[in-house]
Amino acid sequence: MLFFVAPAITVAIIGFIFSKVYQGKEKVDKGYAVNYFRLSYRRRMMRTWTSLPISLGAVLVILLFTDYSFITNLILVVFFLALFFGEFYYNYRKWKQEEKAEDL
């Protein structure tokens, strides 16, 4: 269990730090930016969408190379797909809110 919890906590802490560092700074909507937190919500949504093949490949590798039961595999697939589409929807909503705020 520690094998999964420690990396998850580390990623959450680093994500929180980066979000605070880049909060309120100019976001990149055109061109290339490696840092996810420097991107506008539109670009974050596009990056999420383009990561779909990699995400599906990772899920496929998990399914093929683990000895989990069918139910466990199904739960993992549903969990990863929910995370993916949740992130996509969140970035889409924030992009539209940002766009609406600019029009006012």
Rank of each mutant, 00 (worst) to 15 (best):
Y92I: 04
F16T: 11
Q23R: 12
I13E: 06
V11F: 14
R93L: 10
S55T: 13
K30V: 12
L104C: 06
N35V: 14
T48K: 11
F65Y: 12
L39R: 14
F84H: 10
L63Q: 10
A101L: 11
K30Y: 11
V61T: 12
F70R: 08
E99A: 13
N91D: 13
I62E: 00
V11A: 14
Y36C: 02
P7S: 08
W95H: 12
G31F: 06
A33L: 04
I62H: 03
S55L: 14
V34I: 13
Y89F: 10
R93E: 09
L64I: 07
R38V: 06
A12I: 05
F16V: 00
Y22T: 06
M1C: 00
I71C: 00
S19F: 05
R42L: 14
R44S: 02
V11G: 02
E98Y: 07
I17E: 07
K96T: 10
M46Q: 14
S51R: 07
L81P: 00
A58P: 00
I13R: 05
S55Y: 09
F88R: 02
T66A: 01
E98N: 09
K30M: 09
I54N: 02
V59M: 13
L64F: 09
F79G: 00
L2N: 11
G31W: 07
A101Y: 04
I62C: 02
D67G: 14
I9R: 03
Q23C: 02
V5T: 08
G15R: 07
S19D: 15
Y68M: 13
L52I: 10
V21D: 04
V61L: 14
F84D: 01
I14Q: 05
N35M: 12
E26Y: 09
G86V: 01
A12K: 05
T48Y: 05
M1I: 06
N91G: 00
D29Q: 15
L64T: 05
T48H: 06
Y41D: 12
P53C: 05
A6I: 15
S69R: 07
R93W: 01
F84S: 01
F70I: 12
K27M: 14
N91E: 11
